[in-house]
Design a protein around this nucleic acid. Structure first.
Lengths: 175, 175
DNA sequence: ACCTGAACACCGTTCAAGT
DNA sequence: ACCTGAACACCGTTCAAGT
């Protein structure tokens, strides 16, 4: 709150005239971030392609602001734009024939992969120092981890997400 | 640090004799939490069943301490027990025939689902107030979200994770 | 209606001082 | 070697006071 106020050039307490507190401000940030996401799935595409497109857009929007990833997680139930995104995802799943618990699990798996990828990237991206440290691990103790880290270094973050989500989508079916 | 010191019954600064600072202490916490995870996969099981067993054990260990989920994320590259778990997962994948980039993506998808499920549960579990709020959403604006939330309420957290991970495993193949 | 500054109850950490 | 308390530079928020 103090940092935001200084950025705006106003006293800290002036913010409280427009916002209920830190939590509320965070929720507005998340809503603003997700409001830019186009929730209309591409026409003339399979349901898998449409789910993929929606998830890639959300990932791109949130991934542009890595520091806000935890905020997106926390306020995904209150930010209207987050709800609209989930509804859009469910529309694609519903059209594909997903119903009941199966649809709930499908949504959860997709959001799990989406947020999982975001938090893994936020707290140690594949191309970051963490992976480099893994690649330098003692071969005797962690042979596969060292080898896998070396392979992982060449995979761009976007591609890694797309390929991971493809696995989930391949395993999903309406019945 | 202050809270930990008080719990132990010692001055705050006494901690700094044993620990480099907050980050270091957190890393030790994560290591301790994951040290209890048995990384020997069940014998006489398919590679998918073995991956599932390992992931379920990790999720159970971390899930017992929801407040430590962000810590596990942050220190997964430094806590030795976290590295041992990843190595064990890779061993199963390697035996199943996964190599190179494909193995790297497979690991990432599994860890994505694991941590994704953990953070979704940490910041709004399926059976919590968030889902209840979703179920009460205006039907006109979010019909599918409201309906799906109602179905989701009856799915236990463990079952939801198992079924989500099953989707990922079904979509995975060594080549 | 809108903004302000002091104060409160917190943080992690540095540093000099104790035994 | 081990521990301590004061101090520093931070937080978010309350509250009384200003225009």
């Amino acid at each position: 709150m103090r940092a935001v106020a200084e950025e705006i050039g106003v006293s800290t307490m002036a913010l409280y005239r427009y916002v209920d507190g830190r939590e509320h401000l965070e929720s507005l940030v998340v809503d603003h971030m997700l409001a830019s996401v186009d929730v209309t799935p591409p026409a003339a595409a399979s349901w898998r392609e449409r789910v993929m497109a929606l998830c890639e857009r959300a990932r791109a929007a949130i991934g542009e602001h890595p520091a806000a990833v935890p905020l997106a997680l926390m306020h995904r139930h209150t930010a209207p734009a987050a709800l609209r995104f989930a509804e859009a995802l469910l529309e694609v799943l519903a059209e594909a024939g997903f119903v009941g618990e199966r649809r709930a699990v499908a949504l959860r798996a997709l959001l799990g992969q989406l947020f999982g990828s975001l938090v893994l990237t936020r707290f140690g991206p594949l191309s970051g120092p963490g992976t480099a440290a893994l690649a330098a691990l003692p071969e005797e103790e962690f042979p596969l981890l060292a080898d896998t880290a070396r392979h992982a270094r060449s995979i761009a973050s976007d591609e890694e997400f797309r390929r991971s989500l493809e696995l989930v989508l391949r395993g999903m079916s309406p019945r």
